[in-house]
Amino acid sequence: MAEEIKEELQEEDTQKGKFMTFQTGKEYFGISISYVNEIIVMQPITAIPEVEDYIKGLINLRGKIIPVIDVRTRFKMEPIEYTDRTCIIVINVKSTVIGLIVEKIAEVDTILDEDIVPPPTLGHKENEQNKYVYGLARTGNTVKLLIDPEKLIKDEDMEVIEEMQEEEQE
């Protein structure tokens, strides 16, 4: 409840309609700025064995250890080499702090509600990322895919696996 109220409040204020946009490949993505804690440069990552391929590992954020995930791998796109421009967006989703590795930060954009259209619902099975994209927005010359971070960090497949494991243990 408290979180919902807080989110509502945040949406009321100046953060309303502001989106952090980043580029991956040719496509632009947007994530509501209320989720974003900070942006840091690429850090040395400690890999964790036996986890999903998109979880790249752990980083040390000033004494706090947080997991980082690669957005490209998450969207089942070809992985790319990390460069100087590669950044980590630290987001906080319902008190889970996670780093998103993105190719390039673009800018902070204001996108009004009326400019957001839901993604086409035509059953493109191969278009996996639709799961995490809740809307499309056209600003300037580009179309931005707006990501729902809660869906992004939650993986239905993973939950199923976990449940199976738990049952197994019992």
């Binding site: 964790i48 040390n60 004494g63 997991p67």
Partner: peptide
């Protein structure tokens, strides 16, 4: 602790920071 977002890996009980700031399991 390993952040709860990462599922539990058998054989690992946590993590720690080493002197150089890197992380060891």
């Amino acid at each position: 602790p390993i952040p709860s977002y990462v599922k539990k890996v058998k054989g690992l009980s946590g993590c720690t920071q080493l002197g150089d700031g890197s992380i060891a399991l």
